[in-house]
Design a protein around this nucleic acid. Structure first.
Lengths: 199, 199
DNA sequence: ATAGAAGCGGAGCACGTGCTCCTCTTGAGG
DNA sequence: CCTCAAGAGGAGCACGTGCTCCGCTTCTAT
């Protein structure tokens, strides 16, 4: 999917520089404006021409995929470490969501990406996240601080949903989405009699 | 905003027919495909030409506004009646969300409309809904079946959020979003110690 | 230093989409 | 029936956006 860097001879020095510049600029722009940006703006901000951009990434989607993959991989790794470094299972779970929404949710394109691959087969993003969420869920349920009928899938979908909410209310409305988060987290407590519908 | 029907002389019979056909077709198409549809498709499905369509609705946005307004008004009225007809405040609250998500959430364009006017001033849609939600909230809180720190705004945002979730998982994933709804509704119970963050 | 391959730039093409323009048709009052 | 203004229709324009083409530049191996 991303341009293969191993099989062919190394890129020329300037080409490598340009590639990096493109990725950096694209990351910025995609975070700010989402995936609907004009490719020309990415080219301009990275200081290269259209030809150069399309030499490195044959398609807008390729560029988008590369950027999102980088962002998401880095972030999922950080989340895993943070979770592993927190002893209290409940704090780990809540901290995960708080951190996720406070940081990742600002990246418009990432949040949009969540939106696409939920009816079809799970995407790479979800693949990376599942182990982390699964670990958080297992620990919390074993400690009795998470309702037993909650699944990893529930937690994943909740993240996607709340990410969208964060974007909806904008950055200045932090208090607003934090209230939604508290409601959801309270709903995940084990103190409830109502069972989640199964199918 | 919508074409004025009162101040000028009545439309010719065929014009009236066409106008109705356009609205009907647009309602269908917008529900299916969201607001990004090609205006040509609406014209074709309603059996009129582009000129006719633009004679009745000078702008795509006008057409969209008219359709959404109709849909939303009708539905909000039904929701109000359903709420008024249910004695148990908790059942009224839960029934509201269940019904809303099962029906209205299938209209892509309506759900998209939720997404736009949350950072700016509240839109007409929200204006219509607020009284209903406010009533549901008051009754439920007085009966002690809804956490006291939940606001009408929380309930409104929750609806927008969950509507988006429904669209995300698609119609066949009903069980999936119903689980999210249960979690949220459980989170709205008054049995919690954690206060919602205020600002 | 020099050849030539690898890389660069940006004007321009293809195409989708909102909207207009102008001619032809049709309903309704006399 | 006849008239004519209100209405219908659909080809075409304007414009934004993904992507290409090809002459020019720059790096690097000899």
């Amino acid at each position: 999917m991303a341009t293969d860097t191993s099989s062919r001879r190394p890129l020329r020095a300037d080409a490598e520089r340009n590639r990096a510049a493109i990725i950096e600029a694209a990351t910025e722009v995609l975070a700010e404006q989402g995936s609907a940006v004009d490719v020309r703006e990415i080219a301009q901000r990275s200081g290269v021409g259209m030809g150069t951009l399309y030499r490195h990434f044959p398609t807008k989607e390729d560029l988008l995929g590369t950027v999102l993959d980088r962002e998401f991989t880095a972030w999922a790794g950080a989340a895993r470490e943070a979770a592993a470094g927190t002893d209290d299972p409940r704090a780990a779970l809540e901290g995960f969501y708080e951190h996720a929404l406070a940081t990742q949710a600002c990246h418009r394109a990432v949040v949009e990406a969540y939106g696409h691959n939920w009816s079809g087969p799970a995407l790479d993003c979800a693949r990376l996240l599942y182990p982390v969420l699964d670990d958080l869920r297992t620990r919390a349920q074993e400690a009795g601080v998470l309702r037993a009928d909650a699944t990893t899938g529930d937690l994943a979908l909740l993240l996607a949903t709340l990410s969208h909410t964060v974007q909806l209310v904008g950055d200045h409305g932090a208090r607003v989405w934090q209230r939604q988060l508290r409601i959801a987290l309270d709903g995940l407590r084990p103190t409830h009699g109502t069972a989640l519908p199964t199918g």
